[in-house]
């Protein structure tokens, strides 16, 4: 029925098919770790209007400048259950890795090539659990700016499937990430804290929150200046007034960027200034104070608090 000779022929045919596959990809790995982490050259994707303008590749950028410009990119997100509303798009480790590898990739890339990447990070979450997540995107240099489109942002791995398969002889699961596209916004819609060389792409008046446009040198310089200001603020200097001024300046910059991001998010979600969260916060604080001073009852407090929250 199925002789031993036929078995050998079957196996050889499989091997030859795999080796001479016509589906060979044109992608070139610049850096790779395991199945799921990489920085890779790939064909330029389509723009919304059709074929995109060729990239300004190859280009020489300083790895440290790229890393510095990425470290400082933050998003503002609304969380009801925690105070810290600011989140880094890239962890310092991710930014350093991308700085090094994107610099190499940008030197090697042709005008018709983009760079796609997937990097991981481990963050401490609720109850101290450490969670791994992946961030993937697309990068290219155009109009004298580094463009990064975020596809998957902090995507968690399928730990249950990983455990089941790794206990079945399959040591690693391959994930396929969304790298973001020029012609189709991804699900990354957090409000980016722009300024200091970091903007979001604006196409015909429509902002693409997933598409970062970075003036690498300016963003890097801003970060270095901020670091310096922070160091000076903490340094034991003789001129106390100067130290306080530097610290205050750094604090004001941070608050201003946060406020700008908040305002953009509100504009994006159709809220008016009168309905913004800042007055609501103020009203909630006032309400808290009134209750603490026992000027209103608990029942009045709860009713009024709900009214305020309904305004959101």
């Amino acid at each position: 029925m199925f002789s031993k000779i036929n078995i050998v022929r079957f196996l050889l045919a499989l091997l030859v098919t795999a080796s001479w596959s016509p589906l060979a990809r044109a992608d070139e790995d610049i850096w790779k770790s395991g199945l799921n982490l990489y920085v890779r050259l790939t064909e330029q994707d389509d723009a919304a209007s059709g074929r995109p303008v060729p990239n300004q590749h190859p280009v020489n950028l300083d790895p440290a400048a790229i890393a510095n410009s990425l470290i400082d990119i933050q998003v503002w997100d609304k969380h009801w259950f925690k105070k810290d509303e600011i989140e880094e798009v890239f962890s310092p480790e991710q930014a350093r890795l991308l700085g090094q590898q994107l610099a190499i990739a940008l030197r090697k890339a042709s005008p018709g090539q983009d760079i796609v990447f997937a990097v991981s990070r481990t963050d401490t979450k609720f109850l101290g659990f450490r969670d791994l997540s992946y961030t993937a995107g697309r990068a290219f240099y155009s109009n004298d700016r580094l463009n990064i489109i975020i596809g998957d942002f902090m995507r968690p791995p399928d730990k249950f499937q990983e455990r089941a398969t790794s206990s079945a002889g399959v040591m690693e699961i391959k994930y396929y990430f969304r790298h973001g596209r020029r012609d189709d916004p991804s699900d990354f819609e957090s409000a980016v804290m722009t300024g200091d060389g970091v903007e979001v792409y604006n196409e015909g008046g429509k902002r693409r929150l997933d598409w970062l446009v970075i003036d690498v040198n300016r963003a890097s310089a801003a970060r270095l200046a901020e670091e310096k200001a922070g160091e000076e603020a903490n340094a034991p200097v003789s001129d106390e007034a100067l130290r306080q001024e530097a610290a205050r300046f750094a604090q004001e910059r941070r608050e201003m960027r946060l406020e700008m991001a908040r305002m953009r998010k509100e504009v994006g979600s159709g809220q008016t200034g009168a309905e913004s969260t800042a007055p609501i916060e103020s009203r909630l604080k006032t309400l808290d104070e009134l209750r603490q001073k026992k000027l209103i009852s608990d029942e009045e407090y709860e009713r009024k608090r709900q009214d305020i929250l309904n305004d959101l």
Binding site: L11, L15, A18, S19, S21, L23, R25, L35
Partner: peptide, 12 residues
């Protein structure tokens, strides 16, 4: 098992 060959893997 072969390493990845253009998306293919063969294990015998």
């Amino acid at each position: 098992k072969t390493n990845d060959i253009n998306g293919f893997n063969l294990e015998v």
